[in-house]
Each structure stands twice: as structure tokens, then as C-alpha cells.
């Protein structure tokens, strides 16, 4: 069998901010093992305080495992040289749109990462143009960040990351502070990036967003609880309730019907399939 090399590999990862002061069973993250392949669209879902943001920060070496190892490609986050290379491979978009924009205009902010990498000016200009084109901010080059909407600010942050040509983009709750329109803008962009072959990892507590991905990982109580293709998880998503997560509406309807003695047992992978099933139930007589 041909061995497929995974892009990201976490093996036996334990982490805590104060490992010497905490009992091991209270550490922020416990015994995480998983691999992510190139080109995947993964959602990491969990309630607030579950450790999912800590997980995100382990991926690009902003945090380093207390035990175990995080590998990205050929490098490990546990040593300085590895982190140097990994920061170039893994781009990160954070939660608060205001707190990640460094420069006073849109163009300069996209340039910031490129300047840090020491990219020559002639190469910077086309890369900035392209990144702004992808996120749909052409024409905003000289705007000040204070005059952008929340969704636009997040798209700017994404452009700043894209210009650096990363292999993986991690969205750390990047939609949670946005209004519905801004959220939609960012989700659309994620989908587009994935279709263009980017590896997308999205950290969120929203069920609605989780089922847009191909694969859903649930982190709760500091541990990895579930890791399913999203279609499979949808059908048994009432499991999510035990961690305080949202259960999609059609699955809630099915559970309520079951309580009243109406069992609809065909597995469903999305809302439309539930509509079809209800329709069959109503027209059976």
C-alpha cells in the first residue's frame, strides 16, 4: 500500500498554560491525535472554553505542546527552525477583526506580512493586487481600517494571509464577532479557497457552519470527542447536545417526532433529505 504523507500530524499532544500547577486531567488539551491531509476542509467544533482556540494556536507554533509533537510537512513546531518554516506554511485569521490589522491602510496591511518575509517590492505589488482581488477588496486599497465593516475587516485579514501564499489557513472563530452578512462573506470565501485547493481549518461553535465542511472534529472538555465526515455526523448530530452545541433544526424535528411515536429512520445528511423524508411520511397514506 502506498503511504500517503499527511500535511498536519498531531501525535500524543498534551498542552497546558501552567503545566506545573495543574493536575494533568485538567490540562487545556489532552491526548490529541489526528492527521489532516492537503486540500481538506475541516471544521473544529466545540463550546466556548473547550480548548479549541488553544488547538488552533498549536498548529502554527504560537503555542508548543507540553507533551507530544505537532508536525506540519517536514517540520516540527517544537524547534525554532521548524517554527520559522511553519509560520510561512500556516496562515491564521483570528476572532476579533479589529485586533489583527496592523497598518493604517488596506494596502499597507496586506503588505505587512510580505515585508516581514523580506519579499522585494516589485514582487509584493502583484501579490497584494491578487490577494485583494480574491477577497473582493479591489478599490479599497487606500481605505483606513476604521472605515471598513466587520466583514470587510476580516476579508482584509484573509488577504494579508493569502498574500503570503500559505498552504494551510486556520480560521480561529473568525466569524463569531460578525453580523450575518459579514459571516456569509467570510464563509463564501472559505468555500472558494477550499475549491481552489487550499487546506482550510475552521474553528467554530456554530453548527450551521460546521456542516459546510467535509469533515467535523468535535473538541469538548479538553479532548477530541468526535471526528466524522460531516454527512455522517449530521445524521447523529443529536449527540452534539451533550456538549451544549446546537443540533440542526431538521434533526431536532426528527427527535421530537420520535418522542411522539413517529420514527423516521433513514439516515439523512442535510436539511433537504429531511424535507423529502417528511414528505414521504405525510404522503404514505
Amino acid at each position: 500500500m502506498k503511504h500517503i504523507k499527511s500535511l498536519i500530524e498531531l501525535s500524543g499532544v498534551w498542552f497546558d498554560y501552567h503545566p506545573d500547577r495543574q493536575m494533568k486531567e485538567q490540562w487545556a488539551l489532552q491526548d490529541i491525535n489526528l492527521t489532516i491531509q492537503s486540500g481538506e476542509y475541516v471544521v473544529v467544533m466545540g463550546p466556548n472554553g473547550s480548548g479549541k482556540s488553544t488547538f488552533a494556536r498549536l498548529l502554527n507554533g504560537l503555542l508548543i505542546p507540553t507533551e507530544g509533537e505537532v508536525r506540519v510537512g517536514d517540520f516540527s513546531t517544537s524547534n525554532g527552525l521548524g517554527r520559522f518554516h511553519i509560520r510561512r506554511k500556516v496562515g491564521m485569521v483570528f476572532q476579533n477583526p479589529d485586533n489583527q490589522i496592523v497598518a493604517t491602510t488596506v494596502r499597507d496591511d496586506v503588505a505587512f506580512g510580505l515585508e516581514n518575509l523580506g519579499i522585494p517590492r516589485e514582487e509584493m505589488i502583484p501579490r497584494i493586487e491578487r490577494a485583494l482581488e480574491v477577497v473582493g477588496l479591489v478599490g479599497f486599497e487606500n481605505r483606513e481600517p476604521a472605515h471598513l465593516s466587520g466583514g470587510q475587516k476580516q476579508r482584509l485579514a484573509i488577504a494579508g494571509v493569502l498574500a503570503m501564499n500559505p498552504e494551510i489557513i486556520v480560521f480561529d472563530e473568525s466569524t463569531s464577532m460578525l453580523d450575518p452578512q459579514g459571516r456569509e462573506e467570510v464563509r463564501e470565501l472559505m468555500k472558494e479557497l477550499h475549491q481552489q485547493g487550499q487546506t482550510v481549518i475552521h474553528i467554530t461553535h456554530s453548527a450551521q457552519e460546521a456542516f459546510l465542511a467535509e469533515r467535523v472534529i468535535v473538541i469538548a472538555h479538553h479532548r477530541l470527542q468526535l471526528d466524522y465526515p460531516s454527512r455522517d455526523l449530521y445524521n447523529q448530530s443529536n449527540l452534539l447536545e451533550q456538549w451544549g452545541l446546537e443540533v440542526p433544526l431538521p434533526i431536532r424535528v426528527r427527535a421530537l417526532l420520535k418522542n411522539q411515536g413517529v420514527e423516521l429512520n433513514e439516515p439523512i445528511g442535510n436539511s433537504d433529505e429531511m424535507v423529502a423524508q417528511i414528505w414521504r411520511y405525510l404522503s404514505k397514506t
Binding site: M92, F94, V102
Partner: peptide
């Protein structure tokens, strides 16, 4: 937050 974001962008 800003320091983290700057570090993540290679500053």
C-alpha cells in the same frame, strides 16, 4: 491579540 497576530504573520 495584536502581538499574536503580528507574530503569526512573521514579524
Amino acid at each position: 491579540d495584536l502581538a499574536t497576530a503580528m507574530e503569526a504573520r512573521g514579524y
